[in-house]
Design a protein around this nucleic acid. Sequence first.
DNA 1: AACTAACAGGCACATATTTACCGTTTATTA
DNA 2: TAATAAACGGTAAATATGTGCCTGTTAGTT
Lengths: 106, 106
Amino acid sequence: MATLAFSAPHELQELLGERLKRLRLSRNLDQRTTAEKAGISEKALRNLEAGRGSTVETLLRVLKALDHLQGLDMLAPEVSVNPLELLRQAKPPQRVRRPRKQNPAG
Amino acid sequence: MATLAFSAPHELQELLGERLKRLRLSRNLDQRTTAEKAGISEKALRNLEAGRGSTVETLLRVLKALDHLQGLDMLAPEVSVNPLELLRQAKPPQRVRRPRKQNPAG
DNA sequence: AACTAACAGGCACATATTTACCGTTTATTA
DNA sequence: TAATAAACGGTAAATATGTGCCTGTTAGTT
């Protein structure tokens, strides 16, 4: 079956939480130790694992505590520039430009 | 050079933001369109891209808007159980158990 | 089966993020 | 280089998350 069959933000958060919990368990760390290592409260960790709402900072701190920062690479790859494009434009675009309004007198 | 040379939560957030921005640009989407698609405000998107603090929900909404939910899989793999373990224990542990206090009369 | 510590969740208050709106800066095109 | 829209950053009020504390619940050991 395909991964990520769920798509609602609420469900995604729960899914992420479950996976983080499993990751923690696979590391043989309890919530107290993990929270301490991450520099957050146990409650914040519980909320994260339960998918009850967290901040990005909390998420990153936990990932680091679980030695799983590499996951960040996958989350948003370092460079996503098409090699073919690289041959034509020296610097990647820093803005998106929508096409200008067409000439009224076609 | 290695990815993720930074480790402070603040720097990690900035790094994540930069990557998300590059991802958005590679999709040729502007902030307005992306924010609308994600169901969040442009400001929230800007804060995320600038690493200025966000919620996990905002992050997930943006990832979905950028068609990059697959990144979640990498972030926390669906199954992290060692296949070898699977042969010995039917159900994975749901708790971490620290060793009991040693007998005083060793 | 009893024990015990890990886990779960509610509450009140502190702190952070979101939203909506604003004016400004700046990349990119014509 | 002038025009234009994308991107940036500040503020105030609304909403959400974090923390600390406390009380159950339950998995895993003995």
